Amino acid sequence: MTSPLTLAHSPCPNDTFVFHAWTEGLLPDAPEVRLTFADIDVTNGMAARGELDVLKISYATLPHVLEDYALLPCGGALGHGCGPLVLSAGPAEPAALAGARIAVPSTSSTACLLFRLWAAEAVPGGVGDITVLPFHEIMPAVRDGRVDAGLVIHEARFTYDRYGLHRVADLGEEWEKRTSLPIPLGAIVARRSLGEPLLHRVADTVRASLRAARHSPTASRGYVLRHAQEMRPEVVDQHIDLYVNEFTVDLGQDGLHAVRALLDRSAELGLLPPLPAGALETTGRL
């Protein structure tokens, strides 16, 4: 009997929405799968250690794992108007962050990479200490003055005003002004040793799971809300609408161009290792 594939992704609504049909056994022809929920910082580490078969990781981690994992062209998170935010307790210009204490959810995330790219130009002299905090603790820490600013992602775009916080920068807007490209955030990767036939099957299964979710969004509603970490239903809907889009179905040339632009620019600044030629060839293209 063949062992089930192992999969890890976050409990965020976009991931649970996309993978629900597969992980809950609703696709009769899909390979059997065993799911682990883990925050992105954890899945990045899992990929770096080669622990699971299929993972959702940060694009910032991709150059470190391409020897063992292939990039799948579907299921990930790219888009327009969906970038991370830099928040402060009061109105502040970017230059005010020079030497400041900044809270981030992960140093291995694409959000932190975008922050470093932005700060290299926008913050003369650079920021000060970077502190990793659990995502849900960042906005309270900024509000309470325990840090000077915070880097937030996902649903915080819709909720930061409840904490009385102010937006210093929208790093997605900054990226799009510079490049006119979508913002690469999260990638789906699969172990190369699975072999081409199974890699293609996994990509087809991810797309089938997404099609099922879109065809009958109410079918996954309870599952998504159950794992949404006390998110309000309307915020869950905004989250899915923003992060599940045409790039989730297929990266396409625009998506691949955006990924390469991000990783090449980061390599130029010494933030990531350079990509070898052909490194972003994907498996299971439409």
Rank of each mutant, 00 (worst) to 15 (best):
S3T: 14
P4Y: 11
L5N: 09
P11Y: 04
C12I: 11
C12Y: 12
T16C: 15
E32K: 06
R34Q: 13
L35A: 10
T36H: 10
A38M: 02
V42T: 14
T43P: 02
E51Y: 05
L52D: 08
D53Q: 11
D53E: 15
K56D: 08
I57D: 07
A60H: 04
L62M: 10
D68I: 00
Y69G: 04
G75Y: 12
G83D: 10
L85H: 10
V86Y: 01
A89C: 09
A89Q: 14
P91N: 03
E93D: 12
G99A: 10
I102H: 01
A103R: 01
V104Y: 00
V104P: 01
A111P: 01
R116E: 11
A119W: 01
G125W: 02
H136E: 13
H136M: 05
V142A: 06
V142K: 06
A149V: 09
H154R: 13
R157P: 02
R162W: 01
L165W: 03
A169P: 07
L171H: 02
G172Y: 04
R178S: 14
T179K: 03
P182N: 06
P182E: 05
V189E: 09
R191M: 05
S193L: 03
L198Q: 13
D204M: 03
L210R: 08
T218G: 09
R226Q: 05
A228G: 06
R232W: 07
E234G: 05
V236T: 13
D237Y: 00
H239F: 12
H239T: 02
L242P: 02
V244G: 07
H257T: 15
A258K: 07
A261G: 00
R265S: 15
R265M: 14
A267C: 09
E268P: 00
L271E: 09
L271P: 08
A277P: 13
G278M: 06
T282M: 12
R285K: 12
